[in-house]
Amino acid sequence: MAATSEGSQPPYLQVAEALRERIQREEFPVGSQLPSGRQLADEYDVAPNTVSSALRLLRDEGVVVSQQGRGSYVREKPAHSEKTEEFVTIMSALSSLQDAVRDMGSRIDALEEVQRNQQDGGPAS
């Protein structure tokens, strides 16, 4: 399944939903390790950062747990794990905001570099 640009959802939400469905179908049972970010990016034909955003959302929802250097694992559902639609919407919006802030930081860095180059008389590219 490739994340489609035609969908109304951003690609990271499409990937998160696909993984959530696979977990619910027990294709990835509780305690199992998910494929690596690189493998998921290849499988869903998206950038690795898109997969990272999808996994972050699933972590925030309590669906998976990640261990630095070891990967992401399907978490056992606690008894109170039912998330309201509002909670999922808020977490999606928060994840989108985090991505936007990261993007703005990159843009600011690029603008500052151009400004430094112009002040030093270097190329303004």
Rank of each mutant, 00 (worst) to 15 (best):
E26A: 13
E27Y: 06
E27P: 03
P29I: 03
P29E: 01
V30D: 09
G31K: 00
S32T: 10
S32V: 05
Q33M: 09
Q33T: 08
L34R: 09
P35C: 02
S36E: 12
Q39L: 08
L40T: 03
A41T: 08
D42K: 14
E43D: 09
Y44F: 15
Y44P: 07
Y44R: 03
V46M: 11
A47G: 04
A47H: 03
P48L: 10
P48A: 10
T50C: 07
T50L: 03
T50H: 00
V51R: 10
V51H: 07
S53Y: 13
A54S: 09
L55M: 13
L57A: 03
L57F: 04
L58P: 04
R59K: 14
D60Q: 09
G62W: 06
G62I: 01
V63H: 03
V64Y: 01
V64D: 02
Q68W: 10
G69R: 10
G71F: 14
Y73L: 12
R75P: 08
R75D: 07
R75W: 05
E76P: 07
K77Q: 14
H80D: 07
E82A: 10
E82F: 00
E82L: 01
E82K: 08
T84I: 04
E85Q: 09
F87N: 12
F87P: 01
F87L: 14
V88R: 15
T89G: 11
